[in-house]
């Protein structure tokens, strides 16, 4: 059986002001697979992720040209299509950043934040979704008794898992991770790697990383950023 193409990128060109970061990128990402994007820092790996959920539009001076399709509910949709609300896109193509960025509120409210954004008011449903997301992010047992505490009191690794849980709470199809372990110590990074392996299958994962061993352990497919473009390595 051929794997289903989840994301298709065609002739993507990305500029910051007058500086071209990516030129004519073509790439495909398969459903349920974990694809790694590797390469030296400062060459547009994170930028590439932002092109997939249109987050670049919030960065002053950034400009992207080209086409990105995402397959949602069986149909391929062009992300820049004006009839496709960007908020829905970002819920279904969620993102986790290099530095954990909990919002200044309690652990529970952090994870429930995407639900609030969607306008869901039902407390019981929210509690269920939050518990499920925290379990999938390997965090439930550590925080189940302190859900009301400020999320910024957690350790770095816990904060990053919290951010993953928050991303999962929106039930995304795709999860973009921008060097999710680079600000963590080895043990915390190990937990996150394990977590990513369990997420494969249900979610399509795109992970930016510069740790080659990590990539070898995790990835089904690897792209490398070189000469302003993405090349398939394996």
């Amino acid at each position: 059986m051929d794997p289903v193409i989840k994301i298709r990128v065609e002739e993507l060109t990305f500029r910051y002001g007058t500086r071209t970061v990516l030129r004519d990128v073509n790439a495909v990402f398969f459903e349920g697979a974990l694809t790694a994007v590797v390469g030296p820092s400062g060459r547009g790996k994170s930028t590439f992720l932002m092109a997939l959920n249109r987050l670049w539009e919030e960065v002053p001076g950034a400009d992207a040209r080209g086409r990105v399709w995402v397959r949602l509910d069986g149909n391929e949709r062009l992300v820049s299509d004006p009839s496709f609300p960007v908020t829905e896109l970002r819920r279904r193509v969620a993102m986790v950043f290099q530095v954990p960025n909990p919002l200044p509120m309690s652990i529970f409210k952090n994870v429930a934040f995407p639900l609030k954004v969607m306008g869901l008011r039902d407390k019981a449903v929210a509690a269920e979704v939050v518990e499920d997301a925290l379990r999938r992010a390997f965090l439930w047992d550590e925080v189940k008794d302190r859900l009301r505490e400020d999320a910024r009191l957690l350790s770095g690794g816990q904060q990053q898992r919290l951010c993953i849980a928050r991303a999962l709470a929106a039930q995304p199809d795709v999860l973009l991770l921008d060097e999710p372990t680079s600000s963590l110590d080895a043990r915390a990074a190990g937990i996150i790697e394990e977590l990513l392996l369990t997420l494969k299958g249900r979610c399509t994962l795109v992970v930016v990383s510069h740790y080659l061993e990590q990539v070898e352990r995790l990835a089904d497919q690897v792209y490398e950023v070189a000469d302003e473009t993405l090349q398939l390595v394996s």
Partner: peptide, 24 residues
């Protein structure tokens, strides 16, 4: 900037981002 895009990356629209993140 990283705070600014946190909620946006979770699908919040600019008004939600303003009310729940930026103003607080």
């Amino acid at each position: 900037q990283e705070v600014r895009i946190t909620a946006l990356s979770l699908g919040a629209d600019p008004v939600q981002n303003l009310a729940w993140v930026l103003i607080p």
